[in-house]
Design a protein around this nucleic acid. Structure first.
Lengths: 120, 120
DNA sequence: TTGACTATCAATCATTCGGTTGAATATTGA
DNA sequence: TCAATATTCAACCGAATGATTGATAGTCAA
């Protein structure tokens, strides 16, 4: 039985993941650490808008920022996604057909191989 | 490489999951079919508010409604959650410690056993 | 037919969200 | 010191969100 704090944390994580810009930021940060300006570069929106998106990710606990001098280095913290993963995986029984694919894919990760990932 | 339609579908699914009332509705519908009034009963908010939450779930493709006479029977359609599950499971490598728990849990589901589920 | 019941529609309200522009803060380096 | 740089803060804007209340539509049954 999750307490209210957990529920609110889940609110923030799912809400953070509901925006395509923020998902793209997390995908990028999965590759390493980046400065705010580096993260902002691919987007057509203003740097300030990206900065606010990063703040949303920080509030959800998904990103950690470490400021040294002028620059602010951003690092992924995927831990909070775990509860979201547990939540959505409760429904995996409904896509049995694709289930073998998912488990194989998770198995790939477990053995530190690269899954068939067509991500842009 | 997901197309824009898929991205927007993911937006809607994650956004739908970001509200605790809607997550509770999905959990309930995982147990079977319910009328709108039955779904609304446990909540302190108005029936109309619950009806609107259900409409959000329908728009995300997570719930199907079938109206017969006065009543509207609601049924879970978990399929669209799959893409969200794939998305969050990309980050499973970051919680290796808990990973065995997750795979064991998925394995339980695969064999139609009941996982250790303390859900309210 | 009348009345109760189920659910949605409609209007409203306060708040949040995603974006903008402009100013401020702080750091670096010439 | 002074100018350029990196980031955040602040104010604002329009649209979306989550809730309310009241009205409406449609169905069932006495």
């Amino acid at each position: 039985m999750p307490d209210q704090t957990d529920e609110q944390a889940l609110d923030r994580v799912f809400s953070a993941l509901s925006d395509p810009v923020r998902r793209a930021l997390l995908s990028r940060l999965d590759e390493g650490e980046f400065l705010v300006s580096e993260l902002a570069e691919p987007f057509d929106i203003s740097l300030q808008a990206v900065s606010k998106h990063i703040q949303v990710l920080v509030a959800a606990g998904l990103v950690v920022q470490e400021r040294t001098g002028r620059v602010s280095r951003c690092r992924l913290n995927a831990g909070p996604i775990y509860q979201a993963a547990v939540w959505v995986n409760r429904y995996s029984k409904y896509w049995q057909a694709q289930f073998e694919t998912l488990t194989a894919w998770l198995d790939d990760i477990e053995h530190n191989r690269t899954p068939d990932d067509g991500q842009s």
